[in-house]
Nucleic acid binder design. Structure first.
Length: 109
DNA sequence: GTCTTGACTAAGC
DNA sequence: GGCTTAGCCAAGA
């Protein structure tokens, strides 16, 4: 369910661990999302890099290899970083609670 | 079994 | 915005 949720994040958008958990139907399991992504091999076609923390930042140590990889992937899709963070009001997904309800109700594709 | 860890968060300063 | 502190809960050890 978690991986399915990650796959639904649109290009050029980002989603927080907490929101991924919610969309996956697992409220309050943000850490589990991180655990799953950590264990998931190089998910081909899995937009894992679109998942960031609630602070709008990448959850890897700044300067680390992983940090650079994720950031470049996002910037390549047009996501802009300002002061090491992205504006969730602009790039965050889903945008509104209303949208979230639709997602939970809608059949998975 | 328990104890620790951690790609997390919301709340309080 | 930043830093701390409490919760959180599945995995690992």
């Amino acid at each position: 369910m978690i991986l399915a949720a990650v796959r639904r994040i649109p290009r050029g958008k980002v989603c927080t661990y907490g929101n991924v958990a919610e969309v996956a139907g697992l409220p309050r399991r943000a850490r589990l999302v991180g655990t799953v992504l950590r264990q998931t091999p190089a998910g081909r076609g899995l937009p894992w890099y679109r998942v960031i923390n609630a602070g709008g930042r990448i959850s890897f140590p700044v300067g680390s290899d992983a940090y650079a990889r994720q950031r470049h992937k996002l910037e390549a899709e047009g996501v802009v970083f300002v002061g090491g963070r992205v504006d969730l009001r602009r790039y965050g997904w889903p945008q509104h609670e209303e949208r979230l309800d639709e997602l939970l109700w809608a059949p998975r594709s």
